[in-house]
């Protein structure tokens, strides 16, 4: 990649790894239910602010890691993440220039879409889990978005 600004690949990998760990660290049940999908938020951030750095390979890889850690059908979270990241990359110029509040709304929508895809695949593959609690984390994820942006933008020079 011969881009003018070097792509923040190291920060990207490191942040994804840390997010994965946050995602599997055991928490008390009530906290675990509202735990935001850290990895999805990190992937969204990079898709919007440095779409070339991770491309769609990073979302795919992160999704596969989630599948392995969650014991889900292989490819389930990968597909959900690839879809969400694709939309984010497609509209990254649009989203990037919005105020942080609107970005948070977009993050909420993206997380809800992600959960919807996972929920659909759960149903199709015969592992349906129709608990309303699974729809809580997009809300906390949206609330976390400004903080996540603030933290992640320090790791590279935003363009």
């Amino acid at each position: 990649m011969n881009t003018r600004v070097s792509e923040p690949r190291g920060a990207l990998m490191l942040s994804a790894f840390i997010a994965l760990i946050f995602q599997v660290v055991p928490l008390p049940t009530w906290l675990a239910i509202v735990r935001p999908a850290f990895l999805v938020i990190v992937v969204l951030y990079w898709s919007i602010s440095a779409p070339r750095a991770g491309g769609l390979f990073l979302p795919f890889l992160c999704g596969l890691a989630l599948d392995v850690f969650r014991g889900a059908v292989l490819g389930e979270h990968a597909l959900a993440l690839v879809i969400v990241a694709f939309l984010a990359i497609r509209f990254h110029l649009l989203i990037r220039n919005k105020p942080i509040f609107e970005q948070a709304l977009f993050a909420f929508a993206a997380l809800a879409l992600y959960e919807f895809v996972v929920w659909s695949i759960d149903g199709w593959s015969g592992h349906s889990l129709n608990s309303g609690l699974r729809w809580l984390h997009p809300v906390t994820g949206g609330l976390l978005w400004p903080i996540a942006c603030g933290l992640l933008s320090r790791t590279h020079r935003p363009r």
């Binding site: 390979f57 059908v73 292989l74 490819g75 990968a78 597909l79 690839v82 990359i89």
Partner: peptide
């Protein structure tokens, strides 16, 4: 144009995920 061939990559990875599943 900054993001080259995302649609193609998307098709590729989405298909790969579905095949895996």
């Amino acid at each position: 144009s900054r993001v080259a061939a995302t649609g193609l990559a998307f098709t590729f990875y989405a298909t790969l995920s579905i095949v895996l599943m």
